[in-house]
Amino acid sequence: MKRGLAVYAVFAYAFLHVPLLILAVFSFNSSRFAVWERFSLQWYRAVAHDGNLIESSLNSLIIAIVATALATIIGTLAAYGLWKRGSAWLSGSMYLSLVTPEIVTGASLLALFQWVFRFAHLRLGMHTVILAHVGFSLAYVVVVVLARLRSYDRTLEEAALDLGATELGAFYRVTLPYLVPAIAAAAMLAFTVSIDDYVITSLVAGVDSQTLPMVIYAMARRGVNPALNAVSTLVVFGLGMLIMLSERLRKT
């Protein structure tokens, strides 16, 4: 039975990982068809010269970095507040935001923005995308940080207060250092869900705030394009490096 399981596991892992490997391999193929011809970097050159791709990548990075920073700070504070004393309606709305289908989140945000724009002189753009991203990644941050707080010894904070720290001082000098690994993990999570999101972003983005997933989606709809393989490989590789880096930092 043990042997059978191991053989099965090989197939299961192949199922999970081989499709992306094949995608990456064919990004180095000189032919634009799914038949191997010879090694070539031409699709990477095409990507490097595609202004649309570059611009949308920059947009994605800006949005992800700003949204991650905001969501991580706000979410960490919220997790601490909820740990002190729960709040049914806040937990409830965050639970709701985690389980709402993306398409519903996006559509309802779009409805809200359009309604607001009737009164305010605003348009869809980077700011609406960032607001949406902070909104949907906030719950992830709270869940991750709160999980770490669950194993935190309350008496440590009480000891700090006993030794003369203010409430804020105790949080900043005792609790926050304990939370650092969780905050880093939460930021990683927020960054990846932000940079990857297509469904919500596509609904609330304006003409000047095209993101990389939106361009990738449009390319995928249009048909086979090895340049898309090259972009995908770069994205997967980039995210992979980021994870490795964060693991490294976590261990030191």
């Binding site: 706000i74 979410g75 504070l77 919220a78 601490y80 507040g81 909820l82 002190k84 004393r85 709040s87 806040l90 709305s93 965050m94 709701l96 935001s97 709402t100 519903v104 989140t105 559509a107 309802s108 945000l109 409805a111 809200l112 309604w115 607001l131 949406a132 902070v134 909104g135 949907f136 906030l138 709270v142 409430e167 804020l168 949080f171």
Partner: peptide, 28 residues
């Protein structure tokens, strides 16, 4: 209280990005 200050931004954000859109959808 510190807790309430810490929760305020999230409360506002959740109201804007989760509850208000939901309310709009319900009305629509």
């Amino acid at each position: 209280k510190l807790r309430n200050i810490f929760l305020a931004p999230t409360a506002i954000l959740m109201a804007v990005t989760m509850l208000a859109p939901l309310a709009i959808i319900m009305v629509y």
